[in-house]
């Protein structure tokens, strides 16, 4: 699976709109994740997961920063994400299904915040992009 040229352009263009709201988008995505899929909270036993929590905002921002870095390295995603991949697969041992759930929650958040921009083509490109990121982050998990 790889991104076509027009898909890359769509992803980068959408990211330019999202970048200024990276922290609120990341935070909302995590809130949706924990609310809709409570089992995902088991990976954050040390966190205060209440709405508005500083830890939630910080982690949401971390996630979106990683997504933004991936957008900037869109032509060479595997090597750009090597460290994160090893962290999630070897040290944190995150079950791969959780990345699908997070990706879905991000898409819903994007649709809610950018209703006019989130066309089926943008949806397709971002779903594919998040699937690729998820594959890279989980490929070392056994």
């Amino acid at each position: 699976m790889s991104l076509m040229k027009n898909e890359r352009a769509i992803i980068m263009s959408m990211w330019e709109k999202m970048a200024a709201q990276a922290e609120p988008i990341g935070t909302e995505t995590l809130e949706r994740l924990f609310c809709s899929y409570p089992q995902t909270k088991t990976y954050f036993p040390h966190f205060d997961l209440h709405h508005g929590s500083q830890q939630l905002r910080a982690h949401g921002f971390k996630i979106m920063t990683a997504v933004g870095d991936a957008v900037k390295s869109i032509d060479n995603l595997s090597s750009a994400l090597t460290k994160l991949s090893e962290l999630h697969a070897y040290i944190l041992r995150v079950d791969p299904v959780n990345f699908k759930l997070l990706s879905h929650c991000l898409l819903v958040t994007m649709a809610a915040r950018f209703p006019a921009d989130f066309t089926p083509e943008v949806h397709e490109a971002w779903d594919k992009f998040m699937s690729i990121l998820s594959s890279i982050l989980t490929e070392k998990y056994r």
Binding site: T27, E28, E31, R32, C35, H51, V108, T109, A111, A112, R113, P115, F118
Partner: peptide
């Protein structure tokens, strides 16, 4: 979520 962004707020 596109058509009812207010109802899909995660900030409840």
């Amino acid at each position: 979520a596109r058509h009812y962004p207010g109802d899909f707020s995660g900030e409840k």
